[in-house]
């Protein structure tokens, strides 16, 4: 897989030069390291709270260190 070499942040297009790394690679590395997302989200319209989402999610690749809860893929 051709690795894009990282583009320096101080690119010629001003301070916001593109990262030079596709987001999917970033996501892959984050998953490789493992991440826990925890927090509360309330979706409201005109100051009226309508939907509440309370998250405590572990997002990680399966490995010996972080085993999958069941052996096969199981039901999706």
């Amino acid at each position: 897989m051709a690795r894009d070499e990282p583009v320096p942040w101080q690119g010629e297009e001003g301070p916001y030069g593109p990262l030079g790394l596709p987001l999917v690679d970033l996501l892959d590395r984050v998953l490789g390291a493992g991440v826990v997302i925890s927090g509360d989200l309330v979706i409201a319209i005109a100051e009226v709270p309508l939907i509440r989402l309370s998250l405590h999610a572990l997002l990680a690749s399966v490995s010996d260190r972080v085993p999958a809860p069941w052996a096969d893929g199981g039901r999706l």
Binding site: D4, P22, L23
Partner: peptide, 12 residues
């Protein structure tokens, strides 16, 4: 194209 973040998928 995510602007300053680059792209979602590789552009190769």
């Amino acid at each position: 194209d995510l602007g300053p973040l680059g792209s979602l998928l590789p552009r190769d």
